[in-house]
């Protein structure tokens, strides 16, 4: 069951499928109670656990523009909601954070759509931001493609066809196995080998994206 929130108020959040702490694991409940008490350590802990993930998610969905502000806003909403007691199941904190982040994304998209609409009414030649990759990103992308090309050239024509059907044409495993007389094991093996080869070849050359590693 999915965590549920009313459209405008996070206090309707009632999560399900609680992840109970295993022996040796910290409890989300303790963290939530610490935040509710207004302890700085609790908020620091919340930030430590989720800041990278929230940044990662927001950047993936909305791009790097104003990322710090968006991350900050998200934590503000989460902390305020916890303090107001709107999180009824503290062990569902992960689900709650996810819901807040998703709502942030949806709200941002709404604002962008509205903004574009208003700008279009005012000025049909309004400026749009440049969505091209930075030189570093473009270089990384080229490296990825070179490695992928090496991987694809290194496999047989039939294996290449299988990988192409899956990744490019988005055929399902079942479709490919039926169409090319493959067993599921063969299919999975081929995919995992190709991916492993990509990882090996790219390990020394590929650069990790840094924008969220702060």
């Amino acid at each position: 069951m999915s965590p549920r929130m009313s459209s405008g108020n996070p206090d309707a959040f009632t999560g399900a499928e609680t992840v109970d702490p295993q022996p040796g694991e910290r409890s989300w409940l303790a963290l939530v109670e610490s935040i509710q008490r207004g302890e700085l350590s609790g908020m620091e802990e919340l930030y430590r656990v989720f800041s990278r993930g929230v940044r990662f998610y927001l950047c993936r969905q909305l791009g790097p523009q104003d990322l710090d502000d968006k991350v900050h806003d998200t934590f503000l909403i989460v902390v305020q909601a916890i303090r107001k007691g709107e999180l009824r199941e503290p062990e569902r904190l992960m689900g709650f954070v996810r819901t807040v982040v998703r709502r942030q994304v949806a709200a941002q998209i709404d604002r962008s759509v509205q903004s574009r609409r208003e700008q279009a009414e005012l000025d049909s030649s309004s400026a749009v931001s440049d969505r091209r990759d930075t030189p570093e990103e473009a270089a990384i992308l080229r490296q990825h493609e070179q490695v992928a090309e090496t991987v694809l050239r290194g496999v047989s024509g039939r294996d290449r066809e299988i990988l192409t059907r899956f990744y490019l044409m988005e055929q399902t495993q079942q479709q490919i196995c039926d169409g090319m007389s493959l067993s599921e094991t063969q299919f999975r093996l081929l995919k995992s080998r190709a991916k492993a080869r990509f990882g090996e070849l790219g390990k020394k050359t590929l650069l990790r994206r840094k924008f969220f590693e702060r």
């Binding site: 656990v49 989720f50 990278r52 993930g53 929230v54 990662f56 998610y57 992960m94 954070v97 996810r98 982040v101 990384i140 992308l141 990825h144 493609e145 490695v147 992928a148 090309e149 991987v151 694809l152 290449r160 990988l163 192409t164 990744y167 490019l168 190709a194 991916k195 990509f198 990882g199 790219g202 590929l206 990790r208 994206r209």
Partner: peptide, 24 residues
């Protein structure tokens, strides 16, 4: 959202999938 390791793995997977789609 809470696992750095899986975030890294997802980045790696996305790079792989995108590259395969681009080169295929």
């Amino acid at each position: 959202l809470a696992c750095d390791s899986c975030q890294d793995r997802l980045l790696e997977m996305e790079a792989y999938v995108n590259a395969m789609r681009s080169v295929s």
